[in-house]
Design a protein around this nucleic acid. Sequence first.
DNA 1: AATGAATGAGCATTCATTCAT
DNA 2: AATGAATGAATGCTCATTCAT
Lengths: 198, 198, 198, 198
Amino acid sequence: MRRQQIMDAAKKVFASNGFGCATVENIAEQAELSPATLYLYFKNKDELFASLNLRMLEALIAKVENVRDEKKLSPEKKIKALEKALYEVYLTDPLNVVNVLRFQSKERLRNLSPELASQIRDYTKKYMKAIAEIFEDGVREGIFLDRHPAAFADTVWSLFAGLVLLEDTKKGLKQGKDLLEPTLELALEIISRGIKKN
Amino acid sequence: MRRQQIMDAAKKVFASNGFGCATVENIAEQAELSPATLYLYFKNKDELFASLNLRMLEALIAKVENVRDEKKLSPEKKIKALEKALYEVYLTDPLNVVNVLRFQSKERLRNLSPELASQIRDYTKKYMKAIAEIFEDGVREGIFLDRHPAAFADTVWSLFAGLVLLEDTKKGLKQGKDLLEPTLELALEIISRGIKKN
Amino acid sequence: MRRQQIMDAAKKVFASNGFGCATVENIAEQAELSPATLYLYFKNKDELFASLNLRMLEALIAKVENVRDEKKLSPEKKIKALEKALYEVYLTDPLNVVNVLRFQSKERLRNLSPELASQIRDYTKKYMKAIAEIFEDGVREGIFLDRHPAAFADTVWSLFAGLVLLEDTKKGLKQGKDLLEPTLELALEIISRGIKKN
Amino acid sequence: MRRQQIMDAAKKVFASNGFGCATVENIAEQAELSPATLYLYFKNKDELFASLNLRMLEALIAKVENVRDEKKLSPEKKIKALEKALYEVYLTDPLNVVNVLRFQSKERLRNLSPELASQIRDYTKKYMKAIAEIFEDGVREGIFLDRHPAAFADTVWSLFAGLVLLEDTKKGLKQGKDLLEPTLELALEIISRGIKKN
DNA sequence: AATGAATGAGCATTCATTCAT
DNA sequence: AATGAATGAATGCTCATTCAT
């Protein structure tokens, strides 16, 4: 489908040029279409970008809800599974994840159409809620610290986002291979240990 | 001094418009000067923005090195002190901190003048090193997990950056008061607990 | 064609304002297009100007090579034919010729794109070579002074350029009709007489 | 005197940057003064430039009138002396001569103050008249072709100007040493021969 | 459905020039 | 006499977006 083709092209261009420097013409070239054609499928550049975000957020939600719904896993194992889920989302398309995290700001959301902004808002709530629910069992069972699970969700998500951006910044400072995995693992091990009572 | 006045104006405008949408004219207006005057004090828009970053990074480095050099504090207390230091930096100028974190990307660094980029690089190394050193005692004394202190630094910094950006994103999703403090406290409590052996 | 239309507009504006004072907006107005449209057809203002030069140089080369290739003409007749050729080029578009001569300076060439500069260089070599070759027969046959034909070419070309600019300067000093023809004729008569042995 | 100091600085800067790219600031730097100070001595940039022209024109007039007034020289010798005079003017300050020739256009004259423009007009008339007078004896005595001496003046002056600009253009095309002298000599030899009856 | 052609709205930057001190 | 500081006025150029075909 055309829409897909355009989104794929956009992903590449956003990733390599950044959102600001990616021109509609670049994207059109990459998609082997004319710029005008993009506007048949997307209202404007922002909506195209937001659509990419949505695709990533959908994948994220799916993975995180999967973890949440794993009835057989112990609370600790769920944290480990969450770690894996997050890393998988990252791996699918690191540059896109970075873009989403960097641009999901007050500023950019203001410029989106209300429907799109509200959809992003909904998705965001949804995955944050799902992450929180991953911690619910542990809290209810008294294994984890007695705090609101949403606070744990904030912590884990922030840690993930922060590490991803740090990785990107480091690449900006000096070239190097992607070192997210071991750092993410250690970070979540610390979280996992720290969250437990005693 | 004029330079200060311009930087203050720029801070406000960058914070409310983002870097891309902040025009030199906006900044000049805010500073009650003509656009041409800005160019007497800053080579261009990028350098102006970078100067803001540098100012924040300097404050950050000072605070973090202070914590590191507190000889009397126990390893745990140092983490607590680090938490306070980070929060203070944030409080000094939340919008600037958000800007720095959001824009310190591979992409933007590419566009800065080599000197400026290298100064930012140096500063970044410096505060990451200082944070790492905060954990050294604990590791050496066998109180903390036996990992490289730099990995702990990555974890804490990412957590801080992630929480700050999450806070910003949340404000984009729905207005609300700043809730960084309690979340940061909890997050670092978890880290603090999780990092300790046993 | 649009390209032509723009070049025609540019010619007028460059001629009446000079290159430096001709704004892209002026040219666009004259062409009844928007400034942005010019950039679809020319990379920038310099390239637009250079394209005008090239058009004139092509015509010049064609005419001069024609004279050179007239096998039946005596050396003296060739000089006369060269005179006519130069005057025809001038007549085609006096203002453009003036522009080309005035601006084909070390300084301006420095600012052109390498390809364009090299094309102008090539064209310049080409017509100077062709002019020189016009004198070859006369020299070989011992009718003309025994000097390198290139030196004669320099002389004739300089005389032409100098007269054209003088004409332009005079128009600046006081309005008046174009008097190039008789002066050019006399000048080349003198050359023609002076170049012959005895 | 300050005025001299500024003109010397301007000469250098105009010569190396061209008029268009020479900024008032450049000139002020070169003169070790502040830009504002220049305006105490010259009404604006154009007048400063024109003053340089005038200085050169004065020297030119002096030399050419000198030749004209050499009562003992034969008509032919006078042409030779004129050649020397022109070359000496050129040698005094080649770049300035180029600048004067290139910029003494309809266009630029339009932008000067009426007094300055009229002074340049007067000077121009004066040296053209003096050059013409150099040919008067030869014409009157029937040694030279029976044409208006002014036409000979146009020819010689154009040839000089054209050769000077050609030299400059060639330097733009490829670096090389100054070859004006031999070419000018040949050119004027040709003129000298061609102008004579029989 | 697709696009070639066109453009309106902006924007960073430059620079001759001014003027209070 | 000299200038540091400031700016008004331009200008070349970019790019998201539109629309007739």
